[in-house]
Design a protein around this nucleic acid. Structure first.
Length: 270
DNA sequence: ATGGTAGCCCCGCTA
């Protein structure tokens, strides 16, 4: 069977509920992971999302900030939420698919790593310190794919552009949060140690430029094209051979009132 | 360590 999994930082799921519907109608992924839903649980637009053909939905939100959700066309079993850095932030949610033929047993982790503020110094900036601590905890956790051998997919807005060609100018962004050496080396180390495969780069290696985010602060994002690859899809090693396709849906950035992130999708043949 | 825009929902905080 084919399994397609998408990730999208939606930056308010309520404001952009129609855009979610349009993306789902046009691309029909089996699973969509959202970040920055910015929505408390009691006002989460569950019915609207289910009406798009995704009956199985889990979400964890809070007022105004953060928030993650997973929509699926297939059933999944127990879901869980990890509390990172001792905070009740809604930055992680996970499901395990149960009734999808070849995809049964695959666990999908959806993460929203802290952006980290503006100053790349943990002593001067509490938010950057939080981001580094979050990555330390990710590293210690690992994903459990290696010890158990169970297939897993990790997606999300990891808020780090790890490679030189994941940003519009490597040199100009070396001091900019999301591309500093301390962040890029931490992300690559924790990915490698746990045996995760970077699915996007597996299919489209450097030096091709790949971006998934363009700042709202750029007046003409498309012409300037000063993007960064902040959104990622990682596969446990046993799934690497099943990877068939990867797509960055750049066009959503040009929609009316867009998210600053665009969806990233992988297709697996299981 | 510039300023720029966007979303939250009360206006400053986070991105």
């Amino acid at each position: 069977m084919k399994l397609t999994v998408s990730t999208w930082n939606i930056n308010s799921v309520r404001l952009r509920i129609e855009q979610v519907g349009r993306f789902l109608a046009e691309h029909r992924p089996d699973v969509l992971c959202l970040q920055e839903t910015k929505c408390p649980n009691d006002v989460f637009p569950l019915k609207a999302l289910q009406s798009f053909g995704y009956p199985f939905v889990v979400h964890m939100g809070q007022k105004g900030y953060n928030g993650v959700a997973i929509l699926s066309r297939y059933p999944f079993s127990t879901t869980s939420v990890m509390e990172m850095c001792g905070r009740a932030d809604a930055r992680h949610i996970t499901v395990t698919l149960t009734e999808a033929k070849g995809a049964s047993g695959i666990t999908i982790h959806n993460f929203y790593v802290p952006a980290g503020g503006d100053i790349p110094n943990p002593d001067l900036n509490e938010k950057f310190k939080h981001k580094l601590q979050f990555m330390d905890e990710l590293r210690a956790w690992g994903g459990r794919s290696k010890p158990t051998g169970a297939p897993a997919i990790l997606v999300g807005d990891l808020n780090v552009a790890p490679l030189e060609n994941d940003v519009w100018s490597h040199k100009q962004l070396l001091d900019v949060v999301s591309h500093t050496p301390v962040e890029t080396s931490a992300l690559e180390a924790l990915r490698g140690e746990a045996g995760w495969i970077d699915a996007m780069r597996h299919l489209r290696p450097e030096p091709e430029k790949i971006y998934s985010w363009w700042s709202y602060r750029s007046p003409d994002w498309a012409a300037a094209n000063k993007g960064r690859r902040l959104d990622h899809i990682w596969l446990s090693g046993d799934l690497a051979g099943s990877l068939r396709a990867m797509d960055v849906t750049r066009e959503t950035r040009g929609w009316e009132r867009p998210s600053d992130h665009v969806p990233v999708t992988v297709t697996l043949e299981l």
